[in-house]
């Protein structure tokens, strides 16, 4: 690390520390805080109340697997459905907008207003969008889907146009010299070139929306958040913890599926497939448990 960089790091860290000290003015309030947390954890949070995985008493469960009538299952499935629909709608709307916002694909006079539109859509958190849509559609799933879709367009659009702007210049220059139209350059060059990042962002957004389903549910927009909200109001924190463990496990599964899907379009994917251990363990430990296999297409590389 050179001297100037070291100095910058020290200055930034010092500034952060000073700001932190300034923000927290009264340290006395922390006295006994940890023991309070301990009491709260022992008496209210632990152990989790796994009755959330048992079928509800009403309506009578007629399903083959009883847990599919449980609060956790019903809430999680609805949250995943809302997140899935909102992510797909958001992606379909965000893709053309991100092409319009990318400075290497669109002229300045189109790119700037599109970026402003995307910024406006993501500057309101999804919980505020949920409140607005609840006023229009009343409480429920539709308000949740609309809120998540709007936020997804703003957030995903930004990630996507930045990926498209980051692609190599050579393919775009070759396409421009050939006389390709703007649509051809976007569809045939920019989107496939940035496919890995686009897919990665799409899967991240789905995972984000599943996690966020717990938040927008709090304002009545459907899904597991609705149950969380109920248990919070009734101070049944052990049930809240049980539901959060379910959300965590679902997020881990989505993360693994996303790694497998992404490996299909990465160069590294030709060499390495992800493993469960890589989700939980540091890379150094994980790689010793699962050594990198031989290059799948080594024969092609060597054939010349």
């Amino acid at each position: 690390m050179n001297r100037r960089l070291s100095l910058t790091v020290v200055v930034v860290l010092g500034l952060a520390l000073l700001t932190f000290l300034n923000l927290v003015g009264d340290w006395g309030r922390l006295t006994g805080g940890m023991s309070n947390l301990g009491v709260f954890f022992r008496e209210s949070l632990w152990p989790p109340d796994w009755s959330v995985l048992e079928p509800q008493s009403y309506p009578v469960c007629e399903a083959r697997f009883e847990f599919t009538c449980s609060v956790a299952w019903l809430g999680m499935v609805e949250t995943i459905k809302i997140a899935f629909v909102a992510t797909v709608i958001g992606f379909v709307v965000a893709l053309p907008l991100s092409v319009m916002a990318a400075s290497n694909l669109s002229p300045f006079e189109i790119a700037v207003p599109t970026r402003i539109l995307l910024a406006a859509m993501r500057s309101l958190p999804s919980i505020i969008w949920a409140v607005l849509f609840m006023i229009i559609f009343d409480m429920g799933t539709l308000a949740g889907i609309c809120a998540m879709s709007f936020y997804t367009v703003g957030y995903l659009g930004k990630l996507q146009f930045e990926s498209m702007e980051g692609i190599k210049n050579a393919p775009l220059e070759a396409a421009k010299a050939m006389g390709m139209t703007r649509t051809e350059k976007a569809w045939l060059v920019a989107i496939p070139e940035s496919a890995n990042q686009l897919l990665s962002h799409l899967l991240f957004m789905f995972e984000y929306n599943v996690r966020h389903g717990t938040v927008i549910g709090l304002v009545g927009a459907g899904g597991i958040g609705l149950y969380l909200n109920t248990y919070l109001k009734l101070a049944q924190y052990d049930k809240v913890v049980a539901l959060l463990v379910v959300v965590f496990l679902v997020v881990v599964v989505i993360d693994f599926v996303s790694m497998v899907l992404r490996s299909a379009v990465t160069e590294e994917g030709d060499v390495e497939r992800p493993s469960w251990s890589s989700l939980f363990l540091p890379a150094a430990i994980s790689s010793t448990l699962h050594p990198t296999p031989m290059l799948k297409d080594a024969s092609l590389k060597e054939s010349e």
């Binding site: 050579a170 393919p171 070759a174 010299a177 050939m178 006389g179 045939l188 060059v189 496939p192 070139e193």
Partner: peptide
């Protein structure tokens, strides 16, 4: 040469789409 398709350009880095 025609503006569409009249000129073929092979840049130093080839300009191919690796994912396709």
């Amino acid at each position: 040469v025609p503006s569409r398709g009249g000129l073929g350009y092979i840049p130093q880095r080839l300009g191919l789409i690796g994912n396709l």
